[in-house]
């Protein structure tokens, strides 16, 4: 049975779409069949980050309205054949999403894939609540910064009250991914420390993604960071996150791109 995962945050620009693409690709690289679904109707981005913007014909709204079949709208990734994208519509808005239509699409996706990853829009309105509604588990993306943390706290409250799982009286499984983390700046007190964020949000930590140019570089070429440069620090953090999601106990570290002093000396001598 497929697992439906929502990537959400409340605040915009914290890395939901990057995280959706990276987790989707990493799960697919690990052999799972994965669909990533863009719920940001009207402001779609996931197609760009996945490098599929030139192949969009039908979108989520077409499928919700019954104008197209799910298979017509799904775009299979060129690099990973077990990774598919269901893009959002850019010309409509969130009001075009109906409860019944979304429920039908999610049921169909569950039958076809091992993992369905929903990229939630920012905010707490219709788009965001519908993206989380059918989820089995949630990944909350947060920057180490007070406004992002408070918005995430608000979203966790909604995950515990507005989802189907919560309404059935079950506990929604929630994980935190802390993005754009810079250990040096956290040590100087310029950003919140990991423990501060965990103390406020009190949900388990899934990964710490270090601030890195690799993330920007990957978006610009339209390739999830875990595929574009699997050895980069953010990619390793996302790959570890996927292993933890699948139940492997992986010790929590903050991967770094910086080479150690010994490494530097070694490369200099070799050159």
């Amino acid at each position: 049975m497929a697992k439906v995962l929502v990537v959400t945050s409340g605040k915009g620009g914290v890395g939901k779409t990057t995280t959706t693409a990276a987790l989707g690709a990493a799960l697919a690289q690990a052999g799972q069949s994965v669909a990533v679904v863009d719920f940001d109707v009207g402001l779609r981005n996931l197609d760009l980050v996945m490098g599929a913007e030139r192949r969009v014909v039908y979108d989520l709204i077409n499928v919700v309205n019954g104008d197209a079949k799910l298979n017509q709208a799904l775009i299979r990734d060129k690099r990973l054949e077990n990774l598919s994208l269901l893009p959002a519509s850019q010309t409509r808005d969130k009001d075009a999403l109906t409860d019944e239509g979304v429920a039908k699409v999610m049921d169909e996706l569950r039958e076809k894939f091992d993992w369905v990853i929903c990229d939630s829009p920012a905010g707490i309105e219709r788009g965001a609540t519908l993206a989380m509604r059918h989820a089995d588990l949630a990944v909350v993306v947060t920057n180490p910064e007070v406004s992002s943390v408070r918005d995430s706290d608000r979203i966790i409250g909604l995950l515990d009250s507005k989802t189907l799982k919560a309404e059935r009286g079950e506990i929604m499984e929630k994980h935190l991914i802390l993005t754009r983390y810079d250990p040096a700046r956290a040590d100087r007190g310029d950003m919140l420390k990991v423990d501060d964020v965990l103390e406020i949000l009190s949900i388990p930590l899934l990964a710490i993604i270090p601030e890195s140019l690799e993330v920007l570089r990957a978006s610009n070429v339209g390739c999830p960071v875990t595929m574009n440069n699997p050895l980069s620090a953010p990619a390793r953090a996302y790959i570890d996150a996927v292993r933890r999601l699948k139940g492997d106990p992986v010790p929590m570290t903050v991967p770094s791109d910086k080479k150690s002093l010994l490494n530097k000396l070694f490369t200099r001598r070799a050159a």
């Binding site: 707490i124 408070r150 918005d151 706290d153 608000r154 966790i156 409250g157 909604l158 515990d160 009190s202």
Partner: peptide, 8 residues
């Protein structure tokens, strides 16, 4: 038993 979240 649960924390009270922002907005609640």
């Amino acid at each position: 038993d649960q924390p009270v979240r922002s907005g609640q």
